[in-house]
Every structure is written in C-alpha cells, then in structure tokens.
Design a protein around this nucleic acid. Structure first.
Length: 772
DNA sequence: CAGTGAGCGAGCTTCCGCTTGACTT
C-alpha cells in the first residue's frame, strides 16, 4: 500500500512526524521494545556463550503482527528509533522479528522534529550499528543475570518474593546507609548570637539592622559571658564591602530535574509528575518527558528568543546551549520544554496547567539574561572584644531570568534572608537594642525524598529517565522502604537575651526530627541490604554501574567483545551465588535484647513471616513464646529492651461496658477499642492506647453509635439510605448509588429507591469496594 | 477490618529499559 514505512518508538512522535513527511510516508510506532529475554526462566543460555533467548511478550504480539503486515506491504522500511543504545537494539530487533533485509532497511535518526531535520535524516540513512546493539545486549543480559540469580537466593535465605537488582539494590542501600548515619548521629549544640542594632547615619536618618556573630559559643557559660562583654561594649561600623555578582539560570528540565522541582514547588510525587507530563506530551504541549539531555533545538532557541524579546525586551534575552553533565547520559532527546513557547498556558486539568507553567518558566528562564546582584557585607566591631558582627544584604540590580524563575533547593539555605540593608557609614556608632544567644543543634544528614533519591541515583549514573519512577515504586512495593511522615520530638533550647543592660535566661521548646513524605528504610530493606553487602559487595557498590557502563561503551566502540565482558563478570559472580546458597544461614535480623526482669524470660526481636516482632521466651514442647508486633516507627536495629517489653502491654482490658470487656489494642488500621465483637478507632493525636481509661472507651463507643444512628436515614429491607461523607446515598447489594439532585432522601420510598438503582449510576467507590 | 508467629513442600515470586493503554481495582 504505502511506499515508505517509517517506524518510531512513540506513537505521539509518529503523529507529528507523519505531518512533515507527506503522502508517500506512513509513520507508525513500535511502542518501545518489541522483544525481550524470555520471562519464565533465566532467558540466557549460560553454557552456550550466554546466548540470549528472546521472545515477543504477549502484550506486544498485536503490535508486532500489525508492523509485520505493514512492512510486507511497504516498498521501503525506515527505522527511526532513538539514537541511543536501546534505540539501536530496538531497530535490530525490529529487523529480525519483522524478517526485514538488513542491507536494504534504512536506519535513520532525527535530531529534532522539524521538517528540515527530518528531510535531512531521510537523505542520509545508514545500517544498524551492531556494536551498539551488542552493548545493549550486554546491558540486558547482565541485568537479567544479576536480578534472576540473586533474587532466588533471597527467597531461600530471607523471604519469598523479594528482589535484587543492579539499580534497585543500590537505591535501597543509599537509604539504609543514610538511615544508619542518622541513627549514629549525635547532635551537638552551640549558641548563635544575633543582634538588633540602631544608629543614626550621616544623613541624620535613624537606621535599624540585624547582624549575626560569625563566632559560635559552645557552652552556656561562654555564651553568657560573651553577652556580658556585649553589655559593656560600644559598637561601630568597622567596614562595608560591596560586591557585585551575577546569577545564571539553571538549564531546562531533564526528567530528573523536573521530578525534583515538581516535588519542591508543586508537591508532586515522582510518579505523579510523570503521569501529568505524559498527558501534556500526548496533547502535543511539551517535548518528550523522559530525557537526560539539557539540549534545545535550534528552532526552540529561536522561538524562545522571540518570545522573550517580545514579552520582556531584548535586554532580557540571552541564547544559551547547556552541556549535559549527568553520568551515562545518552541524549536521544531534547530537554523538556514547551512545544510552542508562545503558548503561555496549557488547557487541561489543574495539575497539567501547573506543571506546564513550571516547564515553560524553566525553559524560558534558561534563555534569559543573567541577574545582576550586589551583595553588601557590613562588619560591626565592638570595643570589648575582637569578635565582630556581620550583616549581609542583597540588592538585585537587574532581575534578568529571576523575573520568570527561581530554582528551589532541598536544604534550608533558603532561610537566609535576602534583605536590603539600610544606608550606614563607616565609623558610625551603633547601639544594640537586644542581643540574643540562641542554642542551635546540629542536624543529622537529611532523609531522602523520592525526588532527592532520583537526583542521587542520577549523579551515580544509576537508572535511566524511563526507570526513575518505576524504581521508586518497586522498592516501596517490595516493602524495602516506605514514604512516611514523622511528628518529631520536642526538645528544649536555651536562650540568653541581653536587653537594656540585663541578661535573662529562658527556655523554649522546638520540634526536632519532624519529617514529611520522606523515604524510610524498613526492617526487611535493611536485612536484605545487609545480606547483599555480605554476599555481593561488588554488585551493590555505588560505582558498580559506572564500571560496567565503561565496558558497555567499549563494546559500543568495538574495543571489547560483549560475551567476553559477560563471561569475565559471570564466573566470580556465579560463584558468590553458589556460596551464599550453601554457606549462609537464614537472615532474620534477630537481636537478643536481654531478659524480661518480671518473668526472667529472654527477649528477642526478629523478622517473622508477617513482619518484625518481639518474642518473649523460647519455643519448646511445653511452652509457647509470646509475640508482639513492632510499631511502624520502630526498627529491629534500634529498639531497646524497655520499648520491646512495652509492646506487650497491649492488648489490654480497660473495663467493662454493658457486661462486655473493652479491650484496647493496635491493629492494622491503628489503635482501637474492641467491645462485643465490634471495633472502635481511637482518636488520632487525642487518645493513647497505653493510657486510655475505661470511661473514655465508653465515650468512644457511644460516639460511634450516635454517628451510625445518624448515618442511617431509612431502611427498606435490603435497600438502605445512608448519610455519607459526600452526602446521602443508597446501598443495595454491595453497590452504592447516587441520589439524584433535588430529591429529599428522608422522603424516599422503596419504589423510588428501586427506580434509582435500576437507572444505574453506581459511584466509583462502590465499584472499587465491590472487588474486596 | 483489627490475625498470625511450627514445619513440610507443592508452585509461585525476580531484573532493567523502551513505550502506552487495559483494566476497572
């Protein structure tokens, strides 16, 4: 039918390209890889020179048969998969699966999606680069060998269904290592001295400025004695330094930086960012969202310049091309940018609008002029001590790209106020209105967020733009890590205040260690990590990927044979697999904490089949040990004997009500009171299961009963009219139904209810709940 | 929806990277 068949990876790309190529070309998509190692076994014939056994997966059969049909009808076939290792392999698999002639099939690559670039690509076809394909095969085979040989060891030695891999195991290690740094961290404190000063400048104006003492004071005594010195001192401006400077915009987004900024600025999870970006891409609003390149096409540079000049003036425009710096970058695509810079807003959902605007701002800012700033540092000397105070201020002389975009950071560095200092003169006398010395604790290294973990992985060259979100999801579904909040702990800080010649000491409390949406390693993650550290230290070395990537590059350039590389890797690796199977005992993370002073029984914590437990006593023919689950915020590694024993305090009976016991415990869904076979949840942040009284238990039961009574509006046998969170609704046969607007639910009859049910209109939650 | 925690052994689990729907959960 068609004269020319062009195959690309993405269907959205196919649509765009077809527009440029005209009638004689049909452009279709392979939807990524079409073939992979067979799924139900190793997929690599180790004893036959590591021969890969490829299969077309079930969900790709349709695409393949469609492509085969089209290729058979076409005069010429052009393969325009991406210009990287994976893209080259896709081209090779296509040739082999579709039964194409390698010498007449044309391999082309598009450097940007413009008519010019596409025409140029069509004019210079080449053949598939087998060295590059072999580099991909080596990558694929290595990942399969690592994943499919180590995971079964974990099933035998730790727990079923666990997994290990070149990427995920290092991701977990990063979190475990960081957690241990936090565990062993001992907070130190020092006093930070700040002063509020007043004076009159040469122009006779009253000025106020805040300054900080660069010297920190380790103890209360030192801090207090310094304030004493201050109270007897005179202060004067000793020096004023004005330094001009510039700030440059960040490069346009890659997948990783988009995920980071969407988290920091919009609070999107990594997966959410990708799914919103996918929508924008499919709608043609942004370029491809899985990329490691900061490159912009010449077309993009030109249109960005036009938009900036038009909107802000030529002074604000500065065309830049950014070098991609991330390790292992393959740069098959452009940076993430708006397809059309002159589209200021995107239609669609709120999240799509927000993400689009972020992408627009970042890309536009990257093509804007530097900001010019002036940083002023005022040094204030004191007569009674060589110690100084300094005040810093910043003035933006020309906003440049800042007009559009400011990058966010994870650390608290942003707390430093960027203030404008008042006019002061050298030698000018200053009087402190107050000087305070506030105790400040050092903080442990921060826990990772999803986005900061992606950033770290990218720095190590581990994982690819298309896999960042899946990795984050895998390590959570395996239970290795969990995204959680922690309330933190109160601690007391001391403060000295010097005011009107008098020093007062006061204490205030602050929250330490509060966490929001951070990744916490769980016990099973730590146990698996330790097992891998002991048995496969090379694989989870932070530089393992960088090392093998170097070899893949050598294969790609023809300097190294792929099977030699794999063979050299495999022999010692497989030996470690065998050794770990034969010599290692099961890993349970068991720790003996001591003996229970009350019963004299040994106390042990370990990973059980259903999660981490504390065990009191040992199993023997005539005695069964007692068990209690650890709380979510406890770790096998850090729990103390006292904390472990306290877990046995539940479940406990707190009294009787209507001749039945009220029992308090902590279940899957949190703390509860159990009474007459029914469960009543304790109020979060109000009730404590360890101290709750019988009286409060009765209150909770009565409250719930009252709520339930209000919940039921009317009942007609198997049909019930209920009051829900979103208003009244009908329940029948396990399904929920909306009540039409304007209907008084209290006046509904059975017949009217049946009519509503027959009309359908089940709610989403009903369908959801039905499966369970 | 608020439990379980032994041991045996059936049969299952698992990797990374490329790309979207399918499926209603």
């Amino acid at each position: 039918m068609t004269e020319n068949l062009v195959i690309v990876e993405s269907p959205a790309k196919a649509k765009t390209i077809e527009k440029f190529l005209g009638k004689d070309f049909t452009v279709v998509s392979s939807f990524g890889h079409i073939r992979d190692l067979s799924k139900n076994n190793l997929g690599v014939e180790v004893d036959k020179g590591f021969n890969p056994v490829y299969e077309v997966p079930d969900d790709k059969k349709k695409v393949v048969s469609e492509l085969r049909k089209l290729a058979g009808q076409a005069g010429k076939v052009w393969i325009a998969s991406d210009e990287d290792r994976e893209g080259e392999a896709i081209a090779w698999h296509l040739i082999s699966v579709l039964g194409l002639d390698p010498s007449s099939t044309r391999r082309i690559v598009f450097h940007e999606i413009t008519k010019d670039a596409i025409t140029r690509a069509v004019e210079s076809p080449r053949q598939v680069d087998m060295n590059l394909v072999n580099a991909q095969q080596a990558r694929r085979i290595l990942d399969r060998l690592v994943g499919f040989e180590i995971s079964p060891v974990l099933w035998k030695k730790v727990q079923p269904s666990l997994s290990a891999g070149r990427v995920q195991s290092v991701a977990v290690r990063l979190l475990v290592d960081r957690e241990r740094e936090i565990i062993s961290f001992v907070a130190d404190s020092a006093f930070r001295v700040t002063g509020a000063f007043e004076g009159t400048n040469r122009e006779g104006a009253e000025v106020k400025l805040k300054a900080e003492c660069p010297k920190k004071f380790g103890t209360e005594a030192e801090a207090e004695s310094f304030l004493q010195q201050c109270s007897n001192a005179s202060f004067a401006v000793e020096n004023i330094v004005v330094k001009p400077g510039t700030r440059s915009p960040a490069p346009p987004f890659t997948t990783s930086t988009l995920q980071q900024e969407a988290w920091r600025k919009l609070g999107f999870s990594v997966a959410q960012t990708m799914s919103v970006a996918q929508k924008l891409y499919e709608a043609g609003k942004i370029t491809y969202m899985r990329t490691d390149s900061t490159n912009l096409s010449s077309l993009a540079l030109n249109t960005a310049r036009e938009v900036i000049t038009g909107e802000f003036g030529a002074k604000y425009s500065r065309t830049r091309q950014f070098k991609t710096h991330s390790r292992g970058a393959q740069e098959a695509h452009e940076a993430i940018r708006p397809t059309y810079f002159d589209k200021r807003e995107a239609s669609g959902s709120n999240n799509e609008k927000k993400l689009y605007e972020l992408i627009w701002r970042r890309a536009i800012a990257s093509q804007m002029a530097d900001a010019e700033i002036e940083k002023t540092t005022v040094t204030i000397g004191m007569s009674s001590s060589p110690v100084n105070f300094t005040a810093t201020g910043e003035v933006i002389l020309f906003d440049g790209f800042l007009r559009v975009y400011t990058e966010s950071y994870d650390s608290n560095a942003a707390e430093d106020e960027k203030t404008i200092l008042p006019r002061v003169d050298r030698g000018m006398a200053l009087v402190p209105s107050t000087i305070t010395a506030l105790q400040r604790f050092t903080t442990p290294p921060p826990r990772y967020t999803e986005a900061s973990l992606v950033k770290k992985l990218e720095e190590l060259g581990i994982g690819r733009p298309s896999t960042y979100a899946p990795i984050i999801s895998t390590i959570q579904t395996r239970g290795y890590v969990a995204r959680e909040d922690r309330p933190g702990e109160k601690r007391t800080v001391t403060q000295f205040t010097l005011s009107r010649g008098k020093i007062t000491r006061s204490e205030k409390s602050e929250m330490a260690g509060k966490e929001k949406s951070k990744l916490f390693p769980r016990d099973i993650g730590m146990i698996v990590n330790d097992f891998l550290m002991a048995n496969f230290p090379d694989i989870i070395d932070y530089n393992f990927t960088a090392g093998v990537e170097k070899e893949f590059d050598e294969i790609a350039s023809g300097e190294l044979e792929w099977d030699n590389m794999i063979s050299r890797f495999y022999s010692p690796f497989h030996k470690s697999v065998d050794e770990s199977l034969s010599t290692r005992a099961r890993s349970t993370g068991a720790r003996e904490l001591g003996t229970d002073p009350e019963s004299g029984l040994p106390v042990l914590v370990k990973m059980s089949r259903y999660g981490p437990v504390v065990q009191l006593g040992e199993a023997s023919p005539d005695s069964k040990p007692r068990f209690a689950n650890l709380r979510r915020d406890q770790l096998l590694e850090t729990i103390t004997l006292e904390e472990a024993l306290a877990l046995f305090a539940l479940p406990r009976v707190i009294g009787t009500f209507e001749d039945e016991d009220m029992t308090v415990g902590i279940g899957k869904f949190g703390p509860y009171v159990k009474h007459a076979g029914k469960f009543y949840s304790l109020k979060k942040d109000v009730d404590d299961p360890y101290t709750i009284t019988g009286e409060r238990g009765m209150e909770l039961i009565k409250e719930k009963r009252e709520g339930d009574a209000q919940k039921i509006i009317s009942e007609f046998g198997d049909i019930r009219v209920l009051n829900g969170r979103y208003g009244p609704y009908l329940v029948y046969d396990g399904d929920n139904y909306r009540i039409p607007k304007g209907t008084d639910p209290h006046k509904l009859t059975r017949e009217e209810c049946l009519a509503i049910i027959e009309k359908g209109g089940r709610t989403k939650s009903a369908r959801k709940g039905r499966k369970k």
